[in-house]
Write a protein that binds this DNA or RNA. Structure first.
Lengths: 121, 121
DNA sequence: TTCTTATTTAAGCAATTGCTTAAATATTTA
DNA sequence: TAAATATTTAAGCAATTGCTTAAATAAGAA
């Protein structure tokens, strides 16, 4: 690592240190947000999240039909989203209805507005 | 796949088809946005993006110092961000200054507001 | 209880990710 | 020109991702 370090004089050591402390002060945020974004950063999961924001609730079976993929594939995405506290499931008989949680909704909602710019209702 | 399909009667076929066409109409958006989010969905890259939003421009060398990682590691993240048209580089002598591009800035800016809620300037 | 349906879980595997180290490419300075 | 600095690129590799298929759970219907 030492051999890769730049020896430049241009850098402002005060600026560098301010940046460093900013990072460590907000470590929690960076971790939490990057985790949420990595969940939404998969095309299938982004579709699921958007579908849930429009339809309020959907079961794995619906999502399998809509997305055109196998149930286990969908189920594994749902599990990740559930583990990340982005969605939650509610059991009604055999079927489990998934819906968005409040937790990260503030973070994700603005993203959805970029999806259907020509939405006419 | 057929054997995995649900046979349920609950589902509203009209709703399913509406969802399907919504997806195909916005395929482009889902692809573009999920790609941008997957870039920001890495903790190191999210930090780089936020640092650039604050400091306006930084070189790989600065970022290496700030992030505490090797130059090549930083450089490879910068390449991904550049390929994804999220940042751009401007060469000044030996050093290359990276900065945010306008392209996805509208998408990313709202995310940054969740990072330093207690920012006192 | 047995059968069917809805869902999850697990194992396997190819593809991707993100680092490491070493080498290559630019640019400036001596 | 040669030497030093800043950056990129490439190869290698462990870890992760996202699918597949098959099996395990869970709940309703016969």
């Amino acid at each position: 690592m030492a051999s890769d370090t730049c020896i430049r004089l241009l850098a402002d050591p005060i600026q560098i240190n301010q940046c460093k402390s900013m990072l460590s002060e907000n470590q929690e945020s960076f971790n939490r947000i990057s985790e949420a974004l990595s969940l939404a950063g998969n095309e299938v999961r982004l579709k699921i999240l958007y579908l849930l924001s429009v339809e309020k609730q959907l079961c794995p079976c619906d999502l399998s039909d809509i997305l055109g993929m196998t149930i286990p594939a969908v189920s594994q995405h749902l599990r990740k989203l559930k583990d990340g506290r982005v969605i939650e499931g509610r059991r009604v008989g055999q079927t489990i209805f998934y819906s968005l949680r409040q937790d990260h909704l503030e973070l994700l909602k603005p993203l959805f507005s970029h999806i259907q710019p020509t939405l006419s209702v």
